[in-house]
Nucleic acid binder design. Structure first.
Lengths: 350, 350
DNA sequence: CTGAAAGCGCTTACAG
DNA sequence: CTGAAAGCGCTTACAG
């Protein structure tokens, strides 16, 4: 009782279940029962333990609990994405968060910045924390540590992509079909010189969108010109600069643009305005963008539904964690183009 | 060697350090040494252990390691915010993520949606995982479980707010001063009927911004009219509707608006366009918004620097975790207004 | 250079 | 209804 000197050492030791037990004069197991609201403890002991918990400010250590519990109830899931600063991903994250919260489960997340190595690190850090499940929007087409982890029975939902040779649940948009729709939309307005601006094609969705573009251009009997294709991983301001430089330098300037992602769309619209080309150059983008109906002309887009993607992926994951054992689910979400003006600018010769 | 039946049981048991030890014919401790790249192990044993690790696909359990290690190296930090779907917060998160990654540390995060109870749950779930530090943008002015946790020596950085009666590191924007600047900016253009649209004032930053607005209006000898103040927690579309209804219903319509947050700005700009008031109603917002220089008129804003806030908060937190023991740091970041047109619309009588 | 024992904070499986 | 023992997967502190 006279260890005041000890008690005042800087970070006062955090009370453990053992401390609560001795303070309440009961066994460890009794404290465990009370803390976990198991029944079969007399009212008096419950009260005594609860008083001790209060007095000491005891909080159970979830790591220790989880360590012994093994595969009781999902305690945490992990989400690996490209860049949380992109609203597309943060909206997915928000959807996942909501589902995880409903299941009283912690959500770990991180951005890979499109770097496959960084992604592998992320996934490994999730795995080393023994997450109960994973949702992944992969960078690159390597599965890295994911495949091995699936062998251990960890359910994985792939978002916005479709890994080869891997049986797993998938939720994604129709990138290929969407790119075809957008490209046809521009072709039907008379454009023959169409540029494509997008993420690095090593990202699954970006690659498929580029494929859809190429295929549609070729099918229209046009040639795909490589200097009309610009890809990379940039933020809106960087895209603005890139696109401006490109439009100024390109030998023959396209009369229409496909922008394959929200940051690209924002940068490209700004670049067109900077060069005063916004009323003559058609543009349709993937992803909706804030204020796109207020800009002149309005920005035509094929919107994704990131919040819905996130919630759906979360639902599927928890279904698996709940024991669902059916064949892999594969959901492909299509969306129609929203016409706001920029995509309906017709080609005018000369 | 003949337990094939056992091996095929559905989720094959994850190999532990003990499995590696027996496969390599060494002790637990030797495996631990190799896995943690401690020296003092003969080349031959290192090779044998590494072979076994490979063969079994062994991955250390970070929870168990962390449990025994106690306060060795920061393993994880937590970030509680209002809403990750808001780019302001996701940009902060991205900044924090970068710093956490530099320190090889896991970042946990979650959204409270402005609900203090939800925030307490979040913080408690972080604490029960024994995060080594916290970064918090609080909802409401209660510290909930944070204060108790700080007593245990867990460093906390408060972001974008300033809790009363709590010694802690703080990084935030100058909400009060910013609101004064914005309001004066509009007053100096001749406006006397100025509306304020913002987050629920129970959120620290929102409250301070409203205070700054009120004070400046009063100092100008004007009366603060309650029906010119609209607050709440909505997304851009909801704000668009709210603002439209409000502008249509309000007895005397303001000629200028202060929008205290990015989602509000987006919704309000859309509402002004919907009602064709955008060329006559002045508007200055907190936070920058995509495409704000492309809209007509351009949207004047007092930009925050969320990425910088996040990185700065992360740096401070890891400084504390590194043992820095100085007095609380208090950084207040000021920004100038970016004039793009909407804020410079002068009041025209009649 | 290598290892056997004890412990981190909790839960499981079993006794009484 | 209550508890003593063993264990989760690792590390620390100590021997040899």
């Amino acid at each position: 009782v006279n260890n005041a000197a000890d008690m005042n050492v800087h970070p006062p030791r955090r009370p453990t279940m053992r401390d609560v037990a001795s303070a309440a004069g009961v066994s460890l197991k009794t404290v465990s029962r009370v803390v976990n609201v198991e029944d079969g403890v007399s009212g008096e002991l419950v009260a005594r333990v609860e008083r001790a918990v209060q007095a000491l400010g005891y909080r159970p250590d979830e790591r220790a609990r989880n360590l012994r519990q093994g595969d009781a109830r999902p305690a945490s899931i992990g989400f690996a994405m490209v860049d949380v600063a992109n609203p597309f991903f943060s909206a997915i994250l928000r959807g996942l968060e909501a589902v995880a919260h409903e299941h009283d489960c912690l959500l770990l997340s991180g951005s890979s910045d499109g770097d496959p190595d960084r992604q592998d690190q992320l996934i490994e850090s999730f795995i080393s924390r023994r997450v109960d499940g994973l949702v992944v929007v992969p960078s690159g087409d390597q599965l890295g540590p994911i495949a091995a982890e699936m062998l251990h029975g960890t359910p994985v939902v792939f978002l916005d992509c479709e890994p080869r040779e891997q049986q797993a649940d998938i939720v994604r948009s129709d990138h290929f079909g969407g790119a075809i729709d957008i490209t046809r939309h521009l072709l039907s307005r008379g454009h023959t010189k169409i540029g494509f601006l997008g993420d690095d094609p090593s990202i699954f969705s970006a690659g498929l969108r580029l494929d859809g573009f190429r295929k549609t251009i070729a099918e229209a009997g046009l040639r795909v010109q490589d200097d009309w294709i610009l890809t990379g991983h940039f933020n809106p301001n960087e895209w603005r600069t890139k696109v401006t430089q490109w439009l100024e330098a390109v030998e023959e300037r396209p009369t229409a643009l496909v922008t394959a992602q929200n940051f690209v769309t924002i940068g490209a619209v700004q670049a067109l305005h900077d060069l005063d080309l916004h009323h003559t150059t058609a543009l349709v983008g993937f992803d909706d963008v804030p204020l796109s109906d207020v800009v002149e002309p309005g920005i035509s887009v094929l919107p994704q539904q990131p919040g819905r993607l996130g919630r759906r992926a979360g639902k599927l994951l928890f279904q698996r964690l709940d024991g669902f054992d059916g064949p892999p689910v594969r959901e492909i979400i299509e969306s129609p183009i929203i016409e706001r003006g920029s995509g309906e600018i017709a080609f005018t010769p000369g």
